[in-house]
Design a protein around this nucleic acid. Structure first.
Lengths: 149, 149
DNA sequence: CATGTCGAAACAAGTGAAGTTACATATTAA
DNA sequence: TTAATATGTAACTTCACTTGTTTCGACATG
């Protein structure tokens, strides 16, 4: 695999669910995301455990947003996914004996840690409502283009 | 594989090569890093092409530092490796039709891009000489501990 | 020409996300 | 109670990618 796309997939799903009044089944969400219902359940499990969505079994069941989009930040979603590894870059060894490698690790880990902090700060600054608003702008613009054509 | 450790490995190797007067064979470096000579050649190839090290064939050959450690930043090394992907996190699709996904992608990509910039800034601020100096401090401290014991 | 060294191709191994299948469990409604 | 609809979950496969390994060829040294 090239990378972990669960964060962007879940965001995509949650914002669709907000527009989608009522429940959305894993099957429905899977079609939205171009993926499988089982993958959806697997990915959404963390968000259910964290209390952002609810899942109901049986006919008429499916997934429901429990909080408003404005009450969920990207960081919340990232955390609910289990805070998966951010970097594809890493150290060769965690507890090396070699003092040179220790010095290298300290430096590289420091740089990565700062970048990770920057990312987390960025994720905390954005709510799903912000993205939904951006979607609204895009929709408007797309409609304008269409009528202009 | 969990992640790409080439950056830290190469840094480790280069600093060892600085202490190591004269040439170091791929075999020697491989033993230092706890890896294989072929892996070393593969990884060092980019640094040779970028002009940071030289490789010589035949008896007495091997790898030589061409520039002083103070003239090489971590960013230089990262670039010489071909600027490998920084993040394990990514988008589901690059050119989505769905406007919701477009909005999600713009936001996530923006956050990642800012974090990447922060990382690159950090990598540019540190030279290999800085790491070597840190190694010197660690060596001194380790010697002090040993005589105190 | 024998030895040592890099260069490079080819292939296997290990890892982790994603896709898929199969079945258990729970809920709704007739 | 039964049939239909959903989720929950385990197991297996697939895919991409770094790393490890083997095996050559090219070339320099003495």
């Amino acid at each position: 695999m090239r990378h972990d796309s669960r964060l962007s997939r879940v965001l995509h799903a949650l914002i669709h669910m907000d527009g989608h009044d009522g429940r959305a089944t894993s099957e429905t969400i899977g079609r939205m995301l171009g993926t499988n219902a089982v993958v959806v359940r697997r990915t959404m499990a963390g968000l259910r455990d964290a209390g952002y969505v609810r899942s109901d079994k049986g006919p008429g069941g499916g997934w429901t947003l429990v909080r408003p989009l404005s009450g969920i930040t990207l960081f919340d979603v990232y955390s609910a996914l289990g805070s998966p590894p951010v970097f594809a870059l890493g150290l060769a060894e965690d507890q090396p004996q070699c003092l040179v490698e220790q010095a290298v690790n300290a430096t590289v880990a420091g740089a990565l840690h700062e970048a990770e902090s920057a990312l987390m700060t960025g994720l905390k600054a954005v709510t799903l409502a912000d993205i939904a608003q951006d979607f609204g702008r895009r929709l408007k613009r797309s409609g304008a283009h269409r009528s202009a054509a």
